[in-house]
Design a protein around this nucleic acid. Structure first.
Lengths: 333, 333
DNA sequence: CTGTTAGCGCGTTCAA
DNA sequence: TTGAACGCGCTAACAG
């Protein structure tokens, strides 16, 4: 029960040359005469032949396949990340396998097993945490591992994460400059490495100045959680006039509930800072001041490390940048 | 220059059995004794062995790979589509190749060539239009073609598109029921099949009732275009009090500009209907009444057709459903 | 139930 | 420059 496909043999027959000549015309830097090359290319075009990369990868070290492993692919920031990643890898001639997980350790393991089965050159993990055993299995099979925004240190893997430590200081300063006096922190209950790091650095910066911060968390990292957090934040106790949200989705929820349900004005009554710079942060309804990660740079770092033969892991910290918009009150000055 | 990987041979040596026994333990329905099976599985686990699907697919008819070809992957509706598609295919044991295009004919052709090179079982095209020649090349290589929301009739391909013809009538009725008297249509200049079909059916329904519709188009199918269209719509001539936007992104832009720049209230001064039911349509700031396609059903249809051996193409029209939210004024009744 | 043999489509020797 | 032979990792057919 073979599949119907065009092979190099078919092209060879059709062009009246040997199969090897066909192989050579599609191998950069092989020696073929211009004449046979023409013949082969013509026949190939006629028959609709394309080199079978699956078979080719049995020989060469590189399959040309890269795995992107992520959960919540439909989420704005994740989707942008995947879009840029895919583009960067494609422009280097690679092809990307998108593997959807639910973020659980088990599903990440399944995803990495798929990556091994398809002899992916590298696997980029954007969600969840691979345990050491599967990481070793990857290495045994020559698969490079990249972890994005994960704290867990995996041997021989490349870790890329934003400079979360600097975030707290910058966010706090921005809120204080905006004249905020009652500061709050809005976070999800999800214990992701980078989200935790942002929270920690913010609280630390506040503590260093002796400023009290009301910490309010709820649910997953979603817009809906933002609504809940905002409701809690504004219906009980002293209303904050400045809030740092660990993601834009939460920020959008907080902003919406503040305006719609509590009649607050932004930024007059409330200054908001988010994180991710999703497309909606730039929409008129939000004009959210937020942090942006250099997604292109991160993707490029993935690619570069994927291409180089050295296998030692490492840690790359990328800078984040505060994008100023209208959700932050202008300094009185 | 071979790649370092664990092969069935390694497992066989380690387990003290023949290589074929290893192959058999991983082939469902092959005959192996429970004892050797145990031996093999244990050794495989120890060495981190996973069957090489690339090599396996040289034999079997199915590579287990499906290509998803799309542009603007970071866009809310597209991202959701891809997320569900990936999930559906994965749950059937398939793996998805995400190929990013810019929507141009050339880039779609490139994407399909990649699909052929990697011997994809089926290629799902969500953006752009494959020409007949590349479509034939796909068929020569046993690749099934699915076109989502594309009008172009490709022989032997499966076409799936929403029931755009019914959309216009429903949207118009909803606006009229909401008491709207000055109707407008907001569309991008992009000439996509489904977007055109929505526009056409709306205009047709209006014409059938002798209702004038102000048609306003601009740019790409983006939020920014929505801002432009809204500005044009409300700054010149008689202001419409009901508008059908061919996508939610445009609708969000129109709503934002109506409120922020022209001080209009929704739905008091303006009723809005969109299309796609992106996540933001459900956000408090928009509460957009919009059409939803059965994404799960579409994805499932892709999978089913991909699995069945019959190769004749076809056309599946899926129903759309109007999701009622607050952007539409309640009937006076 | 097991091992041996052959072949999938391709790249890389090695002679000619 | 070209073609014949071999091997990549795997599965299917054939003996034992």
């Amino acid at each position: 029960m073979k599949r119907n496909q065009v092979t190099a043999q078919d092209v060879a027959r059709h062009a009246g040359v040997s199969r090897v000549s066909v192989s050579r015309t599609f191998t950069p830097g092989a020696s073929v005469s211009a004449k046979t090359r023409e013949l082969v290319l013509k026949s190939a075009a006629e028959l609709g032949y394309q080199v079978n990369h699956l078979a080719r990868s049995l020989h060469s070290a590189n399959s040309g396949i890269v795995a992107l492993i992520a959960s919540e692919v439909e989420t704005p920031h994740r989707a942008e990340m995947l879009s840029v990643m895919t583009e960067v890898f494609q422009s280097a001639g690679k092809v990307t396998l998108l593997i959807n997980t639910n973020g659980s350790d088990a599903s990440v393991k399944d995803a990495l097993m798929q990556a091994i089965r398809f002899r992916t050159e590298t696997a980029v993990v954007l969600s969840g945490t691979p345990d050491q055993s599967i990481a070793e299995a990857c290495q045994s099979n020559g698969i490079k591992l990249v972890l994005i925004n994960r704290a867990d240190e995996i041997d021989n893997a490349l870790h890329i994460l934003p400079d979360n430590d600097s975030v707290g200081e910058i966010a706090l300063n921005a809120l204080l400059n905006a004249g905020c006096e009652t500061i709050a922190l809005a976070n999800s209950d999800t214990q992701t490495a980078s989200i935790l790091a942002r929270e920690r650095s913010f609280l630390k910066a506040a503590q260093a100045r002796g400023i009290a911060v009301r910490r309010c968390t709820s649910g997953l990292t979603t817009y809906a959680s933002g609504l809940e957090i905002g409701t809690d934040l504004f219906s009980r106790g002293v209303r904050p006039d400045g809030v740092f949200c660990t993601t834009d989705l939460i920020a959008c929820g907080v902003m919406d509930v503040a305006r719609q349900r509590f009649g607050m004005q932004i930024p007059q009554d409330l200054s908001v800072i988010g994180f991710d710079d999703i497309a909606q942060a730039g929409w008129e309804a939000y004009q959210l001041t937020t942090f942006r990660q250099p997604i292109e740079k991160i993707s490029q770092a993935c690619l570069d490390w994927s291409l180089e033969s050295g296998e030692e892991g490492g840690k790359i910290t990328v800078p984040v940048r505060l994008v100023l918009r209208e959700s932050l009150r202008r300094p009185a000055s």
